[in-house]
């Protein structure tokens, strides 16, 4: 569903060429739930932006839902959903419901299918009480549920989320997590998310990609990630240890064997 081959992107910083992402190769199959971890500035967001067509790669190639993101951006937009935790795609001054209506028109979603999907998402994400509220008056948790709904109304095969739980309280976080787990389990939607919240990873992700210095430093299950740093109790300590030690200390493991560990979804 998602495939990258030697994907790379350089940025020019004061005349010098800095590779933000380098030689990134991985594959995500349909129906997987993958978490993308890495310290700030490691290249997570750059990777996500290349996969969603926002940034054009300098080297290598990416294929998402069979499309080249940078070249087939509009076609890709109809096949994937994208959520940014730090910025909204909703219309700030209009009622939430109007933003959804706009999604229907822009994505040219059939009216009946749209109605059914919206009704379903409204129920599961409990949007009912604030559908008519202008987005600027929503709490962050409500807005995030609105953003996730907007990204799913056209029924995408892949959902990409960049820090979807950032700033949310424990309850709102739990709601978002259990929804994503359900979406993945029931509809088989492929989910790729970046996060700094290791709770997201432990509860949701069957597979973890660790990006460090723009390279793929680890690709495997949460259990395999823990095994890298023996003697550490919490996943936080494991990841902190990995972030602190520079790239060479993190061994590159081969791709995980399918179903090496059962999904541990509790939310």
């Amino acid at each position: 569903m998602i495939e990258t081959i030697s994907l790379g992107r350089d940025f020019k910083v004061r005349g010098a060429v800095v590779p933000a992402v380098h030689d990134l190769t991985f594959r995500v199959e349909a129906g997987e739930f993958v978490g993308c971890l890495g310290p700030n500035g490691a290249g997570k967001s750059t990777t996500i932006k290349m996969l969603t067509g926002i940034l054009t790669p300098t080297r290598g190639r990416a294929l998402v839902a069979g499309l080249d993101p940078a070249r087939q951006r509009k076609a890709l937009a109809r096949r994937i959903g994208v959520v940014f935790g730090q910025r909204t795609t909703l219309w700030w001054d209009l009622p939430l419901r109007d933003s959804f209506e706009l999604v229907r028109l822009l994505y040219k979603v059939d009216r009946d299918r749209f109605g059914a999907r919206l009704a379903e998402l409204t129920e599961v994400l409990e949007l009912g009480p604030f559908l008519k509220t202008p987005v600027r008056q929503l709490s962050l948790g409500q807005r995030m549920r609105g953003d996730i709904t907007a990204a799913l109304l056209h029924d995408p095969e892949v959902l990409v989320l960049d820090e979807p739980t950032i700033g949310l309280d424990v309850v709102a976080k739990g709601e978002v997590r259990s929804f994503l787990a359900r979406l993945n389990a029931e509809r088989g939607t492929t989910v790729l998310l970046t996060t700094h919240d290791l709770g997201d990873v432990e509860r949701l992700c069957r597979r973890v990609l660790l990006i460090d210095h723009g390279r793929l430093a680890f690709d495997g299950s949460v259990a395999q990630l823990r095994a890298l740093v023996p003697g550490q109790e919490s996943i936080e300590d494991v990841v902190a240890h990995l972030y602190l030690s520079s790239t060479p200390a993190v061994p590159r493991t081969p791709r995980r064997t399918p179903d090496a560990d059962p999904p541990t979804v509790t939310a």
């Binding site: 926002i54 509009k74 937009a77 994208v82 730090q86 910025r87 909204t88 822009l106 040219k108």
Partner: peptide, 14 residues
């Protein structure tokens, strides 16, 4: 600068 151009690039409209 506001990052809103990113959100325009993920919609199926030029």
């Amino acid at each position: 600068r506001a990052g809103t151009f990113d959100t325009m690039l993920i919609r199926p409209v030029s």
